[in-house]
Amino acid sequence: MANIKLDKLTKSYGDTEVLHHIDGQIEHGEFIVIVGPSGCGKSTLLRMVAGLETVTTGEVSIGDKMINDLEPADRDIAMVFQNYALYPHMSVEQNMAYGLKIRKLPKAEIKRRVEEAADILEIRDYLKRKPRQLSGGQRQRVAMGRAIVRDPQVFLFDEPLSNLDAKLRVQMRLEIRKLQRRLGVTSIYVTHDQVEAMTLGDRLMVLNGGYVEQFGTPIEVYEKPASIFVAGFIGSPSMNFVSATAANGVLTLSNGTTLATNTTAAGAVTVGIRPEHLFPNKDGVLKIEVDLPEKLGATTLVHGRISGAETAFTASLNGINAASTADVLSFDAPPEFLHIFDAETGKRIS
């Protein structure tokens, strides 16, 4: 069983602590996505699991075995790198077989595994080619093939799709997901792309500034973001935030608009509402002055400001909307779609 346990992991470079007490329990066969902005420490965390970075304090275990001090090769993991890191002088076949050759597997077994992986990834025709003769997508497959042949307990992906063009990225994203389901191997995937995170992960670990902001399923993270940071980071276009004062189930915005809420919170709060949860209604309480409508075809994004306040606000409307600059639109903001955060700590209240 390849469950992974992160127990109070920290990482410091000299005096600077870059990861702070990371805890997490990953079940066998789970697909975990670590997501966060650049510099949040997500790659460092993955590399600590891989054994490419040392652990400062805390423990990493795979299958209930502490692996802090094991060499990467002894951890029974396989890693796919952002730039693929294929050996340029070896053919695709040699690239995939290299790790097995070092492990001194019998030739016939190596051949069987390489061909099996090549069939899964449909790269059988390229086995004799060198990496430089392949396109980006094909190289990506070879890099995954190299991971598969190892038959590891854990797959680690370090932003493997960021060097591909947009269309290929979507396609490879689906393939990675299908492949992982099929092989049932515990996987950790690092990305800064929240769409990748939402579609791929069984659970997401949202990292910010070396802290875990939230660790939960994509739907949990979307519906109940644990902090302002998570709320703003997950979801596209990102959530609108506005300061308000809460008292007796009523939120009062700075321009005097009042919104009903289910919360029992009182005092200064930050209210978050997603652009797709603003429902046009000519009697709606929330008035938005349009600055710029963006017509995307399926939806129209209306960028504007709350009337009477300077808070930027974006609403996402279905279809093509006729709104133009300086119009004032009215919206309903139903209480079940409001996210209330503590104004000081940024943590979710309800």
Binding site: A50, I77, A85, Y87, Y98
Partner: peptide
């Protein structure tokens, strides 16, 4: 690139092996 070394480490290549093979 550093990834070449890291990839070789994960593949189980020691320093001399990395030197010789890569």
């Amino acid at each position: 690139p550093d990834e070449m070394l890291e990839s070789a480490r994960i593949d189980g290549a020691g320093p001399l092996r990395f030197f010789w093979d890569i």
